[in-house]
Lab assay of single mutants.
Amino acid sequence: MSIQHFRVALIPFFAAFCLPVFAHPETLVKVKDAEDQLGARVGYIELDLNSGKILESFRPEERFPMMSTFKVLLCGAVLSRVDAGQEQLGRRIHYSQNDLVEYSPVTEKHLTDGMTVRELCSAAITMSDNTAANLLLTTIGGPKELTAFLHNMGDHVTRLDRWEPELNEAIPNDERDTTMPAAMATTLRKLLTGELLTLASRQQLIDWMEADKVAGPLLRSALPAGWFIADKSGAGERGSRGIIAALGPDGKPSRIVVIYTTGSQATMDERNRQIAEIGASLIKHW
């Protein structure tokens, strides 16, 4: 067993022997301040990774656009098919120029040779490549099948209805392509620590998230040296922004954090800054 596999296998073990965790309302004060600064709703939840206990939450059962955070769930569904012998990570998928959609920095470079399922998941999570996500959605049967996968996990809230990039439209009061912070946090925890996926697939999923290259201005910008984070960000229309993450000190994750916002007129930089400040408060009061 590799060191990384050992780390993920012992996530519940280490967490069980940690000192009790206590909620700190100071972080919620910052979440509410972010709402004021952005002029928009902000949803927040913080779960203990081992027990699933909610440590703090704000608007945990209000719907927010998922945006690209759905790509972690998508690759979880792909990995479940791999575990069941219905898919192979090494299978190569070929596609054409007509398949390319807006923001496809990886797939646009491989029109000639195609990409493997493993490479597509890596591109979808680490670079948020939209064509990679659409190609992977095709392998599982489309958005409705991802929703069905989530329902089978016990998540009857999260739903995907459309493809990239239309799913980022974020129309107010439109339930399409949305989740709730509580539902997303619980589902992410199941994917990373539950028995739904094999140990190898859980490790692969967290490795992809740990290698995320496009979430630097968010929670990662607030992390002290030595902290662990595996995350996936999302951005959408109407001032929408979000991030889902597993993080913790001492090089291992111990909490799940989900943050979503929508309806702001603020710039992307300002949305990023507010999420980073929430992260800084979380870490300060850990």
Rank of each mutant, 00 (worst) to 15 (best):
M1L: 07
M1C: 01
M1N: 01
S2K: 11
I3T: 11
Q4F: 10
H5S: 07
H5C: 09
H5Q: 12
H5E: 09
F6G: 06
F6H: 08
R7L: 08
R7E: 08
R7T: 15
R7A: 10
A9V: 10
A9T: 15
L10K: 05
L10I: 12
I11G: 08
F13T: 12
F14T: 10
A15C: 15
A16S: 15
A16I: 12
F17H: 10
F17V: 15
L19N: 15
L19F: 15
L19E: 07
P20W: 02
V21D: 05
V21K: 06
V21W: 05
F22Y: 10
A23S: 07
A23K: 05
A23V: 04
A23W: 03
A23N: 06
V31D: 01
A34V: 11
A34G: 07
E35C: 05
E35M: 04
D36S: 13
Q37T: 12
Q37S: 14
L38S: 08
L38Q: 06
G39L: 11
R41F: 08
V42R: 00
V42Q: 01
Y44C: 03
Y44M: 09
Y44W: 03
I45E: 05
E46S: 13
L47I: 14
D48Y: 04
D48T: 05
L49Y: 12
L49M: 15
L49S: 07
N50P: 15
K53C: 08
I54L: 11
I54M: 11
L55D: 04
E56Y: 05
E56H: 08
S57F: 09
R59A: 06
R59M: 04
E61V: 11
E62G: 07
R63M: 07
P65V: 04
M66E: 02
M66K: 00
S68N: 00
F70K: 02
L74I: 07
L74G: 02
C75M: 06
C75F: 05
G76D: 01
A77Y: 12
A77G: 08
V78Q: 03
V78T: 07
V78G: 01
L79P: 00
L79D: 01
S80L: 11
S80I: 10
R81L: 09
R81D: 05
D83E: 10
A84Q: 14
A84N: 15
G85E: 11
E87G: 05
E87Y: 05
Q88D: 13
Q88G: 10
L89N: 04
L89W: 06
R91G: 05
R92I: 14
R92C: 07
I93S: 03
I93T: 05
H94T: 14
Y95F: 13
S96D: 12
Q97E: 15
Q97V: 15
D99N: 10
D99S: 10
D99M: 12
L100T: 07
V101F: 07
V101E: 10
E102L: 12
E102C: 07
Y103A: 06
P105N: 05
P105K: 06
P105F: 05
V106Y: 08
T107K: 01
T107P: 01
T107H: 01
E108C: 07
E108A: 11
K109V: 12
K109Q: 14
H110F: 12
H110R: 10
H110D: 05
H110V: 05
H110W: 08
L111E: 07
T112M: 10
T112G: 15
D113P: 07
D113W: 07
G114A: 05
M115A: 06
V117M: 10
R118W: 15
R118T: 14
E119D: 13
L120D: 00
C121W: 00
C121H: 00
C121F: 01
S122R: 13
S122A: 14
A123M: 03
A123R: 01
A124G: 07
T126H: 06
M127F: 11
M127K: 09
D129T: 00
D129L: 00
D129Y: 00
N130T: 02
T131I: 01
A132K: 00
A133I: 00
N134G: 03
L135P: 00
L137T: 07
L137P: 00
T138H: 14
T138E: 15
T139R: 11
I140R: 02
P143N: 04
K144L: 13
T147H: 07
A148H: 13
F149E: 07
F149G: 04
F149S: 07
L150E: 02
L150S: 06
L150V: 13
G154E: 09
D155I: 01
D155F: 01
H156V: 10
H156A: 14
L160V: 14
D161I: 04
R162I: 02
R162Y: 03
W163D: 09
W163R: 10
E164R: 01
P165R: 07
P165F: 05
P165Y: 05
E166K: 13
E166P: 06
E166D: 14
E169Y: 12
E169P: 05
E169L: 13
I171L: 15
D174Q: 06
E175R: 12
E175N: 13
E175V: 15
E175D: 14
E175W: 13
E175K: 12
R176A: 08
R176H: 10
D177S: 02
T178K: 02
T178W: 01
T178L: 02
T178G: 03
M180D: 11
M180Q: 15
M180E: 15
P181S: 04
P181K: 00
P181D: 00
P181V: 07
A182G: 13
A183C: 08
A183Y: 09
A185I: 03
T186W: 15
T186Y: 13
T186L: 15
L188S: 06
K190T: 14
L192S: 05
L192Y: 06
L192Q: 04
L192N: 02
T193H: 14
E195S: 14
L196C: 14
L197E: 04
L197Y: 05
T198E: 11
L199V: 15
L199N: 14
A200D: 15
S201Y: 05
S201N: 12
S201E: 02
R202S: 14
R202G: 07
R202N: 06
R202I: 07
Q204M: 14
L205K: 00
I206H: 07
I206N: 08
I206E: 09
D207F: 10
W208F: 07
M209F: 03
M209R: 00
D212H: 04
K213L: 13
G216P: 05
P217H: 10
P217E: 10
L218N: 03
L218R: 02
L219Q: 04
L219D: 04
R220F: 03
R220M: 03
S221V: 11
S221C: 11
A222M: 12
P224D: 06
P224L: 04
P224R: 06
A225Y: 12
G226Y: 07
W227V: 02
F228W: 05
I229P: 00
I229S: 03
A230P: 00
K232Q: 00
K232A: 01
S233A: 08
S233T: 13
G234C: 06
A235P: 00
E237H: 12
R238I: 07
R238A: 09
S240F: 03
R241Y: 02
R241M: 04
G242E: 01
I243P: 00
I244E: 01
I244V: 13
A245I: 02
A246Y: 11
A246D: 03
G248Y: 01
G248Q: 01
G248R: 02
G248V: 01
G251A: 12
K252W: 09
P253I: 10
P253V: 09
S254H: 14
S254K: 14
S254I: 10
R255E: 03
R255V: 06
V258T: 07
I259K: 00
I259F: 07
Y260C: 04
Y260H: 01
T262S: 11
G263R: 07
G263M: 06
Q265S: 15
Q265F: 14
Q265I: 12
T267G: 14
D269Y: 12
E270N: 09
N272I: 03
R273L: 13
R273I: 10
Q274T: 15
Q274W: 15
Q274A: 13
I275R: 00
A276C: 12
A276T: 10
A276P: 01
A276N: 09
E277C: 07
E277H: 08
E277N: 11
G279T: 07
A280L: 11
L282H: 02
I283C: 10
K284V: 10
H285K: 09
H285Y: 14
W286L: 04
